[in-house]
C-alpha cells in the first residue's frame, strides 16, 4: 500500500467503510481491501470517480446463506487497485451505480443475470447473456443443472 495515495485517508474516514485493510498488490493484485456498508457504494463510487479511478468490474459471490457484491476499482495513472465487498440480499435491491458510473450498467445486468440480485435505480435491468425467457440464475448455489429451462425453443422440434 502506497502511503502517498490520496484516497487512503478519505476512504478510512468515510462512514460507508466498515474496514479498510492494506494489502500487497504484488502478492494478490490489490492495494486495498474494503468492507463496506450495504448502501454505501454510490457514495464511494463518486469518491473513486473524483480521484481518477474507474470501475473494473462488478461481481458477486453466493455463500449459500448470504450473498456478497464485489466491486473492483483501478486507476490508469498510478498503481492503485481496490476491492470493495458489501453484503447483498435477494429480498432487498442494492443501490445502482449507473447514475454515477455509466460503466456499471452492463456489469449490474450481468450480476442480475447470473445471481438474480436486483439494483434499485438501474434504468434497464434485464438479462444480458442468457435468453430473456430464461427462468434461472446459473451461478447461485441453489441452481440445479439438468432441468429444462427457458430458452429451449429449438428442442423438441428436432428430437
Amino acid at each position: 500500500m502506497n502511503q502517498a495515495e490520496p484516497l487512503y485517508e478519505l476512504l478510512r474516514s468515510s462512514p460507508a467503510v466498515l474496514e479498510a485493510q492494506g494489502s500487497q498488490s504484488a502478492r494478490d493484485g490489490f492495494d486495498l481491501r474494503l468492507a463496506i456498508r450495504a448502501k454505501g457504494m454510490p457514495e464511494l463510487a463518486r469518491l473513486f470517480k473524483e480521484h481518477g479511478c474507474f470501475l473494473e468490474f462488478i461481481t458477486a459471490v453466493d455463500h449459500g446463506e448470504s450473498l456478497e457484491l464485489i466491486y473492483v476499482f483501478s486507476a490508469w495513472l498510478r498503481p492503485f487497485r481496490v476491492m470493495a465487498r458489501c453484503p447483498a440480499s435477494l429480498m432487498e435491491p442494492s443501490p445502482s451505480l449507473v447514475e454515477v458510473l455509466a460503466a456499471a450498467d452492463w456489469q449490474e445486468r450481468e450480476v442480475f443475470d447470473m445471481f438474480g440480485l436486483e439494483f434499485a435505480g438501474h434504468p434497464d435491468l434485464k438479462r444480458i447473456l442468457l435468453p430473456e425467457d430464461a427462468d434461472f440464475h446459473p451461478l447461485r448455489k441453489d441452481f440445479k443443472p439438468g432441468a429444462r429451462h427457458g430458452g429451449d425453443w429449438f428442442e423438441g422440434e428436432t428430437a
Binding site: L129, L130, A134, P138, P145, G146, G151, F154, E155
Partner: peptide, 14 residues
C-alpha cells in the same frame, strides 16, 4: 454435456 444451459448444440438443430 448434461446440464448445460446456454449453448445450442449444433447449427443443424435449426
Amino acid at each position: 454435456y448434461e446440464g448445460q444451459y446456454a449453448i445450442v448444440n449444433g447449427a443443424d438443430r435449426f
